[in-house]
C-alpha cells in the first residue's frame, strides 16, 4: 500500500514538473538595469566585445601610426652622417624589436640630396646607412639581421630645388622583410 502512495507521489511530482509552463525566454531587451528611472542615460547599452590590447612592439604594429616602429626615417645634416639625438628613441624601438624577433630582417637604405659630386654622394649615403646600422647594433639588434646599402642621390623623395626638399632626401630609411 505504502509503495503505491510513493509511486503516486512521485508520479504527481513528475507530472507537476512536466506541466510547469516553460519560463519565458529572456531577451537582452528585457534585462533590467539598475539605473534609476529619473536619470537620463546618454549612452546606449551595447554588447561590448573586449578588444585585443594594442601591442606597439608587434609585427602587426610595424606600419601602425600608433607605434614608434612605423617611423622609418633618420634625417641628416648637410655633408654629415652623424645620427642626431632626436632619432635615438625611434632607433631604440627598432633595435628592441629586432632583438626580440630574430627572424625579422632590416634593409637600411642611405640617401643624399642631389647637390655635389654623384660619386661622393654614393659614399656619403653609404656612411649614413652604416651609421643607422651601427646605432641599432649598439642598442641590441644583431648585425646579421641588418644590411646597409647606398642609393646615393638616385632615389630622391622630392625634386624641388630648396632646402626643405633637400633635407627630406638626406635620409636613412629602414625597411623590413616584405617591404623591399
Amino acid at each position: 500500500m505504502r509503495n503505491i502512495y510513493l509511486i503516486s507521489a512521485i508520479t504527481v511530482l513528475l507530472a507537476a514538473c512536466g506541466s510547469q509552463p516553460p519560463a519565458p525566454e529572456q531577451t537582452p531587451a528585457e534585462v533590467k538595469t539598475s539605473t534609476p528611472t529619473d536619470v537620463v542615460v546618454t549612452k546606449p547599452v551595447v554588447n561590448v566585445v573586449p578588444q585585443p590590447t594594442f601591442d606597439a612592439m608587434s609585427v602587426a604594429a610595424l606600419k601602425d601610426p600608433r607605434s614608434p616602429l612605423s617611423k622609418r626615417m633618420v634625417y641628416f645634416d648637410l655633408d654629415s652622417y652623424v645620427v642626431k639625438d632626436e632619432f635615438q628613441s625611434t632607433l631604440a624601438a627598432h633595435s628592441k624589436f629586432l632583438a626580440a624577433n630574430a627572424k625579422m630582417k632590416m634593409l637600411i637604405q642611405g640617401n643624399s640630396d642631389e647637390r655635389g659630386s654623384r660619386e661622393y654622394n654614393l659614399a656619403l649615403a653609404q656612411k649614413r646607412a652604416d651609421a643607422v646600422k651601427k646605432s641599432l647594433a649598439l642598442m641590441g639588434a644583431k648585425e646579421d639581421q641588418m644590411e646597409a646599402v647606398s642609393l646615393g642621390e638616385e632615389k630622391p623623395v622630392c625634386t624641388d630645388q630648396n632646402e626643405e626638399c633637400w633635407s627630406k632626401n638626406r635620409r636613412g630609411e629602414m625597411l623590413y622583410n616584405g617591404e623591399y
Binding site: 660619386e119 654614393l122 659614399a123 653609404q126 656612411k127 652604416d130 646597409a148 647606398s150
Partner: peptide, 9 residues
C-alpha cells in the same frame, strides 16, 4: 674604389 668592410675605402 670599393665599399668593403663597411664604408668607402
Amino acid at each position: 674604389m670599393l665599399t668593403k668592410d663597411g664604408g668607402s675605402q
